[in-house]
Design a protein around this nucleic acid. Structure first.
Length: 439
DNA sequence: CTGGGGAAGGGGCCC
DNA sequence: TGGGCCCCTTCCCCA
């Protein structure tokens, strides 16, 4: 006979004991803040503590102390609360750091929940953006609007079960890792609006991952300082090599996250590596790539999630980055290069013309234009550019829209650039997939 | 089959 | 923090 409440009661009791510092035989020092805990609980929850405590098993009579500088006390609070309650308080602001800490501590459950959270957030960002753009259709032309806070708004849209519980004030979700990992719950990213990666993309992704492996300078960095005097050096060294092994193993496992490095750079880091390497602070949870800036990490994450929030209005191809979209649009649909496509000579408005083939525009010099004949339509470039760029002060990425297109596209002010984002039906979009450009 | 060119896509970094 | 530019690599198409 099994009493179902026993496990939760037991955990609750242990949590109470931890809070009241009863039977706590382990102290964890994180940036000066001391956390009390039970050795056996930590041992059971974290691969890192398992290794640490088993090494120190001979000294069971002595209280164990561990010191971390690789993450903040707030992050460790979240981790420790999870260990003792099974509930993980994730938000858009802390998820990266929690994931890195969990990776450091080798807590696979937490890592997968964070991964899911990140993927869902990115997906919801996209969905929310589309929804927002579609809703803004009517007033977009008259009002200057800003993008919504995607995390907060997006999560509340979701209603799948088991559903993360949200603190209404800050959009923080409390997730029970066990229920997530054991249920068949498919978060938003798996019901995705985004088409799955094509084979081509997957191949490229794997190529990239290999490249990232070579680039990873910080997977070897140890951020652990044991306060046990007799084991300090060996522990650090052990963890360093362990991190290295794990980073490699993680990369080999393709999707296994191996994030160790996030937050404050430790003294070890700055002493052991050149300045340019120690400044790299943001560790990709999916690969070993490290970047200096959070926004660069956010951008990088799209190559793992496959998120392509920027559709080309002209051909429907989607891009993960706005600058790639703009570049594509200028090259393919605006014929910005002053080069004759046929003879490669310099072709300006005087010496040539922009011609159209499908949605694609390119330049031909007058000679080649005469040779090509009538099957390609010369475009009045000035008129075209006027439509693209109605005023000198505005960016050329303001796209021309025909009247019929206006019925289903949204015009959104995004900073100084006028983006035209096509409102897409998700299911339809999945089928569309990314097609190669018309050549 | 191969080499060249164009396009895509990723990273670094400046504004 | 996002946009945008530059640089580089990779992939694909075509001659």
């Amino acid at each position: 006979m099994e009493i179902s409440s026993h496990l939760s009661d037991l955990l609750q009791q242990l949590n109470e004991q931890r809070r009241q510092d009863v039977f706590c035989d382990c102290s964890i020092l994180v940036e000066g803040k001391v956390f009390k805990a039970h050795r056996n609980v930590l041992f059971a929850s974290s691969g890192y503590f398992k290794m640490l405590l088993s090494q120190n098993s001979k000294e069971m009579s002595q209280p164990t102390t561990a010191t971390f500088q690789a993450f903040s006390p707030d992050t460790f609070t979240i981790i420790l609360d999870f260990v003792y309650s099974g509930k993980l308080s994730l938000s858009g602001q802390n998820v990266i750091e929690v994931m890195s800490a969990a990776s450091f501590l080798q807590m696979t459950d937490v890592i997968s929940v964070c991964k899911t959270f990140i993927k869902s957030s990115l997906d919801i960002s996209e969905k929310e953006k589309d929804r927002y753009f579609s809703l803004s259709d009517k007033d977009a032309s008259s009002n200057r609007i800003e993008r919504p806070s995607l995390y907060a708004g997006g999560w509340q849209e979701e209603s799948s079960s088991p559903q993360p519980h949200f603190s209404p004030d800050q959009g923080t979700s409390v997730i029970s890792a066990k229920s997530w990992s054991k249920s068949n719950y498919h978060p938003a990213c798996q019901r995705n609006t985004q088409p799955p990666l094509t084979k081509h993309e997957q191949r490229k992704d794997s190529i990239k991952k290999t490249k990232h492996l070579r680039l990873s300078p910080l997977s070897e960095v140890a951020h652990f300082k044991s306060s046990k005097p007799e084991s300090q050096t060996s522990d650090s060294a052990n963890h360093a090599s362990q991190s290295e092994e794990q980073a490699q193993a993680g990369a080999e496992m393709d999707s296994a996250p191996v994030g160790y490095q996030y937050g404050q750079a430790s003294e070890v880091t700055s002493r052991s590596f050149p300045d340019d390497l120690s400044r790299l602070r943001f560790k990709c949870p999916y690969c070993t790539h490290v970047v200096k800036r959070k926004s660069d990490l956010k951008r990088h994450l799209r190559c793992h999630t496959g998120e392509r929030p920027y559709p080309c209005q002209a051909c429907g191809k989607r891009f993960s980055r706005l600058d790639h979209l703009n570049s594509h649009f200028r090259t393919i649909h605006q014929a910005c290069k002053l080069i004759c496509r046929k003879c490669k000579c310099h072709a300006t408005d005087l010496t040539g013309q922009v011609v159209q083939e499908g949605t694609r525009h390119y330049r031909l010099c007058n000679e080649c234009l005469a040779e090509v004949g009538i099957d390609r339509l010369p475009i009045d470039l000035e008129a075209e550019q006027h439509l693209m760029s109605p005023s000198d002060g505005e960016k050329e990425s303001r796209w021309h829209l025909s009247e019929e297109n206006r019925s289903y596209v949204e015009i959104v002010e995004d900073g100084s650039v006028d983006l035209v984002i096509q409102q897409v039906d998700d299911s339809e979009e999945e089928e569309k997939e990314i097609k190669p450009n018309i050549r």
